[in-house]
Design a binder for these strands. Sequence first.
DNA 1: ATGTAC
Length: 474
Amino acid sequence: MQKPTRVSSYIHRLEPEGPMRVPGFIFADDELLADMEGDVFRQLANVATLPGIVHGALAMPDAHLGYGFPIGGVGAFDPHQGGIVSAGGVGFDIACGVRTLVTGIHKDRVLAERKTLADLLYQNVPAGLGTKKGLKISGRDMDRMLAQGGKWAVGRGYGTSSDLKKTEEGGTASGADPLAVSDKARKRLDRELGTLGSGNHYLEVQAIQEIFDDNAAQAFGLRKDDVVISIHCGSRGLGHQVATEYIRLMVQESARQKIRLPDRDLACAPIFSDTGQQYLGAMRAAINCALANRQILSHLARESFETVFPDARISMLYDVCHNTCREEDHEFQGRSIRLFVHRKGATRAFGPGHPDLPAEYVQVGQPVLIGGSMGTSSYIMAGTLEGMGISFGSACHGAGRVMSRKQAVKKYPGRQVIDHLQKMNIEVRSHSFKGLSEEAPEAYKDVSRVVEVSHNSSLARKVAKLKPMICIKG
DNA sequence: ATGTAC
């Protein structure tokens, strides 16, 4: 296995060898790099062989083993150079992501009411594996939801149109093709829309513990000791089913197109192919499903919060997706080209001046929401101009696992995790002891180190640190 | 991550 060479303290390079078309670039310090040895190096080298890849296969500081592409992997493809789209390169939970809402309420007031608030959120926000407490949706209404995403949810009374302005693409992924989403995928969403799910998904009430960048914090509406709400969830069973079905189709398409795959899990289709176009249409519909889901959950969280604090004015900071392939213009070798950027377990992080940013954020860059593991800090960062050049405007998405779910269940009993969190003054409500075990903080990398490396390598810059107060888990 | 399966 090839070892990367050091470009700088935080950037390492895998030379293109054999079938690799481009280098691999790894954003990490020595300790995070050591975590990636083997699995991530190999997967990155594999991604670098795919047709039409531009510049390099990238690993963010939180990268770890994934299906085909590493989680924390970024790859951009030029459709005019035979570029491909890969369902495994987007991931199973399509458009899983984080949204943060600002409440304007001081942490001491929440501290005094935290048990009441935790109970209310737990009661009002459906969560857990296979929950059937979400919306009934089918037929043409389903089509509209898949076509319009967050906009559909706001039209149904969940939240306000000002929420949409603070969501990527205004809350609606364009180019969605609801017809490319199978009946089976639709059925899996039955009574699941407006539910949190399980695994690493959560709803947290967090206090702003530290501000690193006053200017950006002001633009983002963040004040030290104020409370925010963060929601981490995705497209539920629908996105999972879309991924499953298109991976199968892409295995066949790759063979038809005679694309040499170093790993079957990298199955893909040329962007300019029927399979590629159908997947993109279905994936965008699944993005809309995730955006609608987070919009509904925001509304439920808002209602609960305002029941306890009627004077709260809860507004959107931003909503970022973690698992997507997006069509974007990027400067490359002195000209602007249209690329299809896969971000799998990676966050879009557009720098200052980008035309897609809401007016309030244009000067400071896109809010980049970094979810910590349970009980640990989360961070708010901002996109940078440098990041546009080195990572197609992408950054890390969270801590990243270091231990498998199975190992974690063995090592950390759920009861022990609850006790641990309570000692840290975190009010936790969960539907599953096993889920708590799987998500034990010790099973994850140190999010602060991941954020530090992201900052030092200019992928994004630190704006604020968040400390959890209440955690609702599936 | 996910109706722990074709």
